[in-house]
Design a protein around this nucleic acid. Sequence first.
DNA 1: GTCTATAGCTGGATAGAC
DNA 2: GTCTATCCAGCTATAGAC
Lengths: 213, 213
Amino acid sequence: MASNAPAHDWREAKRRSAREAIVEAAWELVAEEGLAGLSIRELAKRAGITTPTVYAYFDSKHAIYDAMFGQAAEEFVDLMWSPYGTDDPEQELRIGVRRFLDYCTSNVPRYQLLFQRTIPGFEPSPESFAHSLRSYEHLLKRLKGIGVTDQRLVDMWTAMSTGLVDQQISNDPGGDRWSRLIDDFVDMFLAYARTQGTSATAKSKPTKRRART
Amino acid sequence: MASNAPAHDWREAKRRSAREAIVEAAWELVAEEGLAGLSIRELAKRAGITTPTVYAYFDSKHAIYDAMFGQAAEEFVDLMWSPYGTDDPEQELRIGVRRFLDYCTSNVPRYQLLFQRTIPGFEPSPESFAHSLRSYEHLLKRLKGIGVTDQRLVDMWTAMSTGLVDQQISNDPGGDRWSRLIDDFVDMFLAYARTQGTSATAKSKPTKRRART
DNA sequence: GTCTATAGCTGGATAGAC
DNA sequence: GTCTATCCAGCTATAGAC
């Protein structure tokens, strides 16, 4: 977007870095005040600028939320697609859910912005949301790795992952009462999936791969 | 509290019913505007009174949240303790989680108030929170019924239940994409629990009951 | 207890000079 | 683009007459 303008690239770059500085300050603010506690005035103060300057870079408060969403969603998708250092699909699944859980619990407002609907009226823009779809695709890939393709099983998996995160955040913030149960959860899921007509592990026959269109 | 004043009971009753009317209006308001959208002015308008009158019954906005919390928590604990119409512990467990899920999904702001930490700075009073503890006790009772007493298994159960609710609310509001997976979840949990050295079903030996103090 | 009136503040967003 | 200054709407909460 706004790409093939070879001259004045530095302008674009400068503007982008200014935007990023604002978003950075926004993250710091919501870390202290909660996601809903984002105030443009306070944000400007922290970014070392004034309120109208914020509006030179963002049309509205929701536009700032969207920029935060986009940045975090991209960061998350990069994390989930980065190498897993193993060829074992089950291991990859375990590492994946660990990454997800760590990512969520290490920054609660970010989790709420990305995965819950806690800001009334806010919907991420299609560009921002596209990252989230790519994350979900990688999840499908990981599950397919262990032979799970049934949508019902996929939905059960997302519910289990979310439930872990949710309980950890709500009832033991900063602790590990639920996050330490990850491996038990995976064990439970794998055992169940095996009873559901999927391979669910390498010892059964590998899943027949269907060519992507 | 303010109890043994035999005369003027009608005064107490009238005051209580006025409070209840305000709380009722508060529920209607948050149903439309979201939990954080509770405004004293708008609340007063709906209750057919003026703003200062609200303060004649509640010290602050948080006090209203607390009254809502207490009312809902009591309603919920009554629901969970009400008869299950069966002697089969497994059936009771299934009915219990169904009740929980229906209760949560049928009123999202109420769910957020009771089970999540979404209002910054709000903590329920001990009296209000006591109801929640009694609900949790009944959950322990139901799980004990199928032979599950291990805290780790209990925590896994709460994470699974919450995860179902959370996904249902966040990703398919009004639908049943996750709520219809309840029985699969219970099956999965029961199968896993059986591998964990608990009876987890009636066909094993019944759990030894320890007398309550 | 209930009202009118308002204090006191904070919010998002903008006008207009530079 | 960045500022000063400000508008206007909304909020919680209270003062004081009745």
